[in-house]
Design a protein around this nucleic acid. Sequence first.
DNA 1: ATGAAAGCGCTAACAA
DNA 2: TTGTTAGCGCTTTCAT
Lengths: 332, 332
Amino acid sequence: MSSPAPTLDDVARLAGVSRATASRVVSKGTPVREDKRLAVERAIAQLGYVPNHLARALATQKAGVVALMLPESDDRVFSDPFFSQLYHGALQGFRGSSTRIVLSISQPDDAPDAMAKYLGSGHLDGAIVASHHGWEIARQLYDTGRPVVFIGDPGITGAPYVDIDQEAGVRLATEHLLARGARRIATITGPLDMVVGRRRLQAFQTCLAEHGLTPVLAMDGGFTREGGELAAQQLLAQAPEMEALFVASDLMARGALRALNRAGLRVPEDILLASFDDSVVAVENDPMLTSVGNPAPELGAAASRMLQRVLAGEIVTAPKVLSTRISIRDSA
Amino acid sequence: MSSPAPTLDDVARLAGVSRATASRVVSKGTPVREDKRLAVERAIAQLGYVPNHLARALATQKAGVVALMLPESDDRVFSDPFFSQLYHGALQGFRGSSTRIVLSISQPDDAPDAMAKYLGSGHLDGAIVASHHGWEIARQLYDTGRPVVFIGDPGITGAPYVDIDQEAGVRLATEHLLARGARRIATITGPLDMVVGRRRLQAFQTCLAEHGLTPVLAMDGGFTREGGELAAQQLLAQAPEMEALFVASDLMARGALRALNRAGLRVPEDILLASFDDSVVAVENDPMLTSVGNPAPELGAAASRMLQRVLAGEIVTAPKVLSTRISIRDSA
DNA sequence: ATGAAAGCGCTAACAA
DNA sequence: TTGTTAGCGCTTTCAT
């Protein structure tokens, strides 16, 4: 079991050919005379030869492996269905390409640049990165100069990414609230130092402005349940007249719901609520949330295809923007 | 961005030293004169040099990466908490070792030997394999001769693995049923071509024999919910006198429960039920299942530690057997 | 402490 | 069609 693995040289010697010929047989590209090919194949079988992909990778500068990088803790990755669906989609996108796609999740004692190191290590041809948190890791990964595609706008000019049409999505939610008769609408935003947080807020304001309205108030909920709860509480205190609430994520909406209930307000009777993500959280709530979709499988597949183009040498700078839709449920 | 990545040669040239010296600075092992070291470090910074881990791996025959291999479909992996906990435990086991651990899940169009190929590719120093299904993949992986540790007895003599004490676990469940007064006990087994299926059945029979009893009947439930339901139905038909049922997995127990209910039998009033796994399924049921634990985090951590020993060159053949315990709930 | 040189296992011109 | 010869980027004796 632990004798050193046979190399191509061993195969060649046993088959009585040169290493180059053996290599040709293995990589099936160029034609080889029938009898020699047979000899080589026999030698391979006899020795139980397995090509050293690593050596090949070094020679060809191609690893044949890409990673889906999730700079998140493992429990977040496994508890949030967004990631598993993303992976599923990414898998689909690589079907038939003989490229392995592995999952790289943050490890507890990772150095901040661990992902970038891994990407630059040569073990990977490229990566798809779903960096929900901050742009630092995204920046590092991009700066390796290796093929990378981001899920969601990383806020780096020139970096290829796929994203949903945030503006259109927000518009969907906002106009739905308007259509339901609401005029005094407040919003709970994501962190405003995150691209997606800013964009959703801006889109919301723009949409209202187009209807001759201004937001009653905007409050940062930090994309967490607790943040959403706190934000709703403050909104309630500062703008008790609001008729509807646009919340930039389902999780924050769940928190907001708690605050509203505590204040004795019923959703949707007293106040309308629309949110973003359309995740399982949206349907696990009572009332179920009207929410704009963030279609993970499609994002993953699109990112895969984009990465393949980048790997093929194409220079991709135009993002791929997916349209989205709203799921109308009880909350509005 | 796309200029070729700087190599150690570039660094050496810029620093005015030999490549060997530059290498020494990078890998921090051997002492280097202060001024040269500084020169090299400056050159590294200036060039933005990142070591090519792949080339190093080829030279040292160490990749610094191991995989947790899950020869399962991605949706199974993500839907079964056993795997995420396994990964979590594996991560713990590698803490502080600077080894990256990636997740390798079956891809839809994988060749049967895809995992073995990946393991033999040189990109990995070794792997932890949780092969619930069959022994073929396990065999292939073991036959690569590369460091592998299995989760659960793969049924390959000499192959290192970690497992729970199946016999003791089964005994826990069986004796609990006996203690509750049951004498006529039947069992629903896993597939008997799987090591774990056979072992649980055998242990069950042994335990009963020690109490001077024989099983009323044993039926294969294939480790699926549907299989469990069918098996219970047949048991009911062939042995209506049974007072208790030992089911070899929670999932099958859930199926069995349905069949029992349909037959108008109440658990635990009319019939006692104990199962194996103590997964979320056990508590999601009504009644909640009395079940023997299959502690994924501990298994993962133990496997990691064992793999590290194997990687260190130690020859490990003795399995690590973890003790287990029973969670007593409503079903018995 | 440092450099020269020989690999690690493979692919890819280039000749023959 | 085949073999020879250079590398891919790094580590590691072995001298110096």
